[in-house]
Design a protein around this nucleic acid. Structure first.
Lengths: 376, 376
DNA sequence: TTGAAAGCGATACCAC
DNA sequence: GTGGTATCGCTTTCAA
């Protein structure tokens, strides 16, 4: 059990770590272009050109240079290169975190993973700024003035998000993860189809015979929340069911809120039989509320969650879980990153990508039984 | 409901966005030191010194310079500064993601959030590399040779992690998030006390009368998994209960694994009455398995989860949830970041921080009832 | 207290 | 095909 393989070291040795180590132990810093060219008896110009694949270098020299670079573990200094080229070869992400509850939306991890994949394939670094949502301007200002990124991915857009005209005016290329309704100017975005996802989910619950379906949504200045509510309402309207304000909630997406809401709704008169929840975290609270009342998930109450194209809930044998899978968030990250790179490099590409959620529908035990809940 | 405030724009205006916009619209790039000094009729040297708080600048000049900088939205170019000083003012995080299951451990978000907080307070940028775990060497190599970070936070250490001697040899300052048992040389780390957390959790379940407690652990080349198992075993040993290998599992921490394991264990002979789970994600699968069998959480089966100092499960009225809270992950991030900065800046600080998990014990309904499960 | 000038490590223009 | 050199924007000696 403790017989661990050490692939990392091996990989390094296969690479050029020994050379780097030797150099560092010799007290020297990492090798510079000047040193390398000195060693080769060539000019910096030629070495640089050889390494960067310029055509006017003879094949012989190129080979010689490449070999020497590998041997000595040479890699160009990013800072110097950035200064010389004017491109930072880095992309900034601003991750807003709520200052009200200490929590980071777990989907960011997946989105970032997808984006990171594309970045590293294209030689870009990823610069992260995690900032309290009441201090977000500082992060943008910093990116703008310090000029250490070539582009930005904008997360968690609100309705008519003020950052969009701002970034437009500043001329910093950006792609929005999500959309911003009522925006005045065009902008590039990658989004999942929140409306259709919630419409389908609501339809699904209605098909199962649910009549009183709770919508537990995010705060409605967030764009996604608006769209999700629209989907929910559209499904009801299609069956001529008037939306009941008593069943629609918008708030911070915390576990506690989901829990408290669920307990109070299930304990009240005319309890709902299903919950449609915007956030995985909130859904966990809903689930806990259901459990605490001694009810059985999917027999007594149904729960559907959808978290920005994410869920940890998988489709079970008889659990009506309906949700998108996490892999599609990662895909959104990849798509957004590629779009931004294309824009920055002046390629002509689609500036709008609407992803349908990668949905999974479970089999259900059927309509929820009428609940009888003892309060307390 | 649609009456949205626009604090961001305002904040920007309060800052110096207008100046930046004006400058950019004029076709100019962001202001440089040279331009600013030209405007002021001062040398670059003086302006630089004034801005960087050198003592030999007269108070009058300093004020004048500061005002002009603010007015014109000047901020030093990070790349140039990095090149000149030799410090990148950036810290790298390598986030390994499993190539087997498409999933990012959600705790990273919180750790990153805590670290990011400290970085921005200290003027550091955060550079993220999300890399498949079978290709991690590339990320380190890149950091090392490109020299675009001054230090590294090492995540997810294994037993006797080969990256530790490597980074030591390379002389790049680093702090490990977690520990690496059997490491040959000292290293700086911030870790939660996984052993005591799992020992306490097991104790708690034993106190409730549980005899057959399943341990659902992560892969045991990960250091944390070893320590968690040690805690579990220590609690059993203290009551002279021999650990039952049939109840101990180590594997990829996926939802599906938790689910499948739970279903097969609960359907088998002599089913367990409690689960102690190393990962929130896996715990969700366990929960689903329990639900699918029509069992009621905490009455029929108890579940305790602990995910690297994190849980979304909160302490409920009668649910035996025992776990650390998410805020402590964030705190670990803060502590690790501060430690690294201190090390990089040559301050003398503790190089080892062991955090006790911020645990919450719930009230329980008591010992789990003996289960009768219909297979299928 | 201020300024001139030499780097930092690359790229890229212009000769040869 | 190859090399010299200005340049990117800043910090930092060294002089004044």
């Amino acid at each position: 059990m403790l017989n661990i393989k050490l692939p990392l070291t091996q990989a390094f040795v296969v690479g050029n770590v020994k050379a780097i180590q030797t150099a560092l132990k010799a007290g020297a810093d990492a090798m510079t272009l000047k040193e390398l060219s000195g060693l080769l008896g060539l000019s910096q110009t030629t070495v640089s050109r050889a390494l960067n694949g310029y055509p006017e270098v003879s094949e012989a020299t190129r080979k010689r240079v490449a070999a020497a670079a590998r041997e000595h573990g040479y890699a160009p200094n990013t800072r110097a290169r950035a200064l010389a080229t004017g491109r930072a070869m880095a992309i900034g992400h601003v991750i807003p975190i709520s200052s009200k509850h200490e929590m980071v939306n777990p989907v960011f991890g997946d989105f970032i993973a997808g984006a990171g994949e594309v970045y590293s394939r294209n030689g870009y670094d990823m610069l992260l700024s995690v900032v309290p949502d009441d201090d977000e301007d500082a992060a943008y200002r910093s990116f703008l003035t310090k000029r250490n990124v070539d582009g930005i991915i904008l997360h968690a857009p609100t309705l008519n998000d003020p950052r969009i005209p701002l970034l437009n005016a500043l001329g910093l290329p950006f792609v929005v993860h999500g959309r911003s309704s009522d925006a005045q100017a065009p902008y590039a975005w990658v989004d999942v189809n929140n409306k259709s996802a919630f419409q389908r989910a609501t339809d699904f619950l209605l098909d199962l015979g649910h009549a009183r379906i709770v919508l537990v949504n995010g705060l409605e200045h967030m764009d996604f929340a608006i769209r999700r509510r629209a989907g929910y309402e559209a499904a009801l309207k299609a069956r001529a069911i008037p939306p009941d304000p008593a069943l629609m909630f918008a708030g911070e997406m915390t576990e506690a809120q989901g829990h408290d809401l669920t307990r109070s709704l299930l304990a009240g008169p005319n309890p709902p039989t299903a919950f449609l929840v915007s956030s995985m975290i909130t859904a966990m609270g809903v689930r806990r509320g259901i459990e605490e009342l001694g009810l059985t998930m999917s027999r007594d109450v149904s729960l559907i969650t959808h978290d920005d194209d994410l869920s940890y809930f998988r489709n079970g044998a008889d659990i009506p879980v309906y949700t998108a899978t996490r892999s599609s968030v990662r895909d959104a990250g990849r798509k957004a990153a590629q779009m931004l790179i294309d824009i920055m490099q002046g390629r002509d590409t689609a500036h709008e990508i609407l992803l349908e959620a990668d949905l999974t529908l479970g089999q259900s035990t059927g309509p929820a039984a009428r609940l009888k809940v003892e309060t307390g």
